[in-house]
């Protein structure tokens, strides 16, 4: 069975607030481009599953084809092939529809997503894709393994107060949340070299009948004002004393 991992290129999510600005109601395009944080964890889960079941792993993105240089990280981490559906809308229905077309075309039977994109953070694309595929959907998964003696999979789901070990067969979609067990690997030189000859497929996007899920009215940058005071740092014992005195004066300690 082929497996898939859906990944999105986003502008640097660690950009500090004071350097953040908008253009056309989206983060302005002059920042470094990176893979989404949860998407890298999803690649790691998919890679572990790939070696566990000897499957072929496709990394899939609905993105402008000029994002390939960033998406190639998935190949240098160990994915076998990259599918880019050339499009740039950020409608979750359009995105899911195009990802699903690729999932069907490349005969993929299990797909993992990041829990949420590191820009729009809507957590919509994975369940919508599952609904369009008519497959089961498991959120907040941290690991997936194929059972040795049967056709079933074992998934660990991380919840607020417990970890659940789940067993299921058949086709499904999982969204991946971060955990130490799926910390993304750093591509090594050998994998980087190998990735240069891996196939990259560029597909045309297909328009999904528009779905009026909600109307985007406005995007605003919230402003927060705080009073800051730099304490002297020549002698840290003096600094610490000054801090304690201030906190006591303000009744915090």
């Amino acid at each position: 069975m082929n497996i898939g991992v859906c990944i999105k290129v986003v502008y640097d999510y660690e950009t500090p607030a004071e350097k953040f600005h908008l253009g056309n109601n989206r983060m302005h395009g002059d920042y470094k481009e990176v893979l989404g944080l949860y998407d890298e964890h999803a690649i790691e889960v998919a890679l572990q599953l790939k070696s566990n079941m000897n499957a072929k792993l496709y990394a899939i993105s609905y993105a402008k084809s000029d994002k390939v240089s960033v998406l190639k990280k998935a190949l240098s981490m160990g994915s076998d092939e990259l599918i880019v559906i050339n499009g740039e809308k950020d409608d979750p229905f359009q995105t899911a529809y195009n990802l699903v077309n690729a999932i069907n075309k490349y005969d993929i039977g299990l797909v993992v997503f990041g829990r949420m994109s590191s820009d729009l953070e809507r957590e919509m694309v994975p369940p919508l894709s599952a609904a369009m595929l008519n497959w089961r959907y498991l959120p907040y998964v941290i690991s997936i393994t194929k059972d040795e003696n049967n056709d079933r999979f074992t998934c660990i789901q991380q919840l607020e107060d417990k970890n659940l070990t789940l067993s299921l067969g058949g086709k499904f979609v999982a969204s991946i949340t971060d955990a130490p067990c799926n910390l993304p690997r750093i591509p090594n030189l050998k994998e980087i070299m190998k990735s240069k000859s891996k196939p990259i497929h560029i597909e045309d996007e297909v328009n999904f009948t528009s779905f009026d899920w909600a109307r985007e009215m406005d995007v605003k940058i919230p402003t927060y004002e705080y009073v800051n005071e730099m304490l002297p740092n020549e002698d840290l014992n003096v600094t610490a004393k000054l801090l304690i005195d201030n906190l006591k004066k303000e009744h915090y300690l």
Binding site: Y13, T15, A17, F20, L22, M27, S118, D119, L120, E121, R122, E123, D212, A214, R215, E216, M217, D218, V219, K220, I221, P222
Partner: peptide
């Protein structure tokens, strides 16, 4: 109107629901 914060809390999106039924997470 429903507000959703994105970009790690650096932007607030306002969405208007214009038809029922509606699902709100």
């Amino acid at each position: 109107i429903f507000i959703h914060s994105a970009y790690g809390d650096k932007a607030l999106f306002e969405y208007k629901i214009e038809r029922l039924p509606a699902l709100i997470v």
